[in-house]
């Protein structure tokens, strides 16, 4: 909140947004009631789906996969060959569907995932996509100016690093296998998983380094 003008604008915006939301709330409630009365949906099942996304299905699933790949070369090889099969072999999350592909960051290549046409995202391993991933700025720029997008996230890669952008235009889903941070030799999988941020698995971030673990942000 900078100056007075900004506060004022913000207030107006909130006000407008608020009244839109109440109309949306009413419409969504009407839709749910009609679909329930018609016998198509069961509100208790909706509750359970919402609870699963709020409490169980999130980026920790993916962090554990990455940490395993960092510590187990056979698993890493299997993950890069067939991520669906490799993730299923860990048995800690619901089925990923048949179409997960893991792409590896190296010192020569940095990968970044986008869906320019809608919002395709590997829900089972990363949870629901953040608002920015589904936003026009990200969807429009990721394929044309990925280094600029990385700058928005505070990341500057070496000029000669290849940047590879994967536009998820079909049902294939991608997860980035980031590089293991230096100074983590001998760390347990669980401790390593704490370094793996959601954004590092989308390619708009890097894993935390050991000094940053106490201040983990998304």
């Amino acid at each position: 909140m900078a100056g007075h003008d900004h506060d004022h604008d913000h207030h107006d915006h909130d006000h407008e947004h608020g009244s839109e939301l109440s109309e949306t709330q009413l419409r969504v409630r009407a839709l749910e009631t009609v679909l329930t009365e018609k016998g198509y949906i069961d509100p208790a099942a909706l509750d359970a789906i919402i609870e699963a996304y709020e409490t169980k299905i999130g980026p920790r699933n993916g962090s554990v996969v990455v940490a395993r790949a960092w510590t187990d070369p056979a698993f890493k090889k299997a993950l890069l060959e067939d991520a669906t099969k490799a993730v299923a072999s860990m048995g800690h999350m619901s089925r990923v569907g048949d179409h997960l592909v893991a792409v590896e960051n190296t010192s020569q290549r940095h990968n970044m995932i986008v869906c320019t046409l809608c919002s395709c995202y590997p829900w089972e391993v990363l949870g629901l996509p953040p608002v920015w991933y589904k936003s026009a700025p990200y969807r429009s720029r990721a394929v044309k100016d990925p280094r600029g997008v990385l700058n928005d996230f505070g990341i500057a890669l070496p000029k000669d690093t290849e940047v590879r952008v994967w536009d998820s235009t079909a049902e294939t889903r991608f997860i980035v296998l980031p590089m293991r941070p230096a100074g983590t030799e001998g760390w347990s999988e669980e401790k390593l998983a704490d370094l793996v941020t959601r954004d590092s698995m989308i390619g708009t971030g890097l894993p935390l380094n050991p000094a940053q673990t106490d201040s983990k942000v998304k």
């Binding site: 990925p146 000669d160 590879r164 952008v165 994967w166 536009d167 998820s168 235009t169 079909a170 294939t172």
Partner: peptide
């Protein structure tokens, strides 16, 4: 240094 891929039918 930038490459872009799509999944194409």
């Amino acid at each position: 240094t930038i490459k872009i891929s799509i999944d194409a039918f």
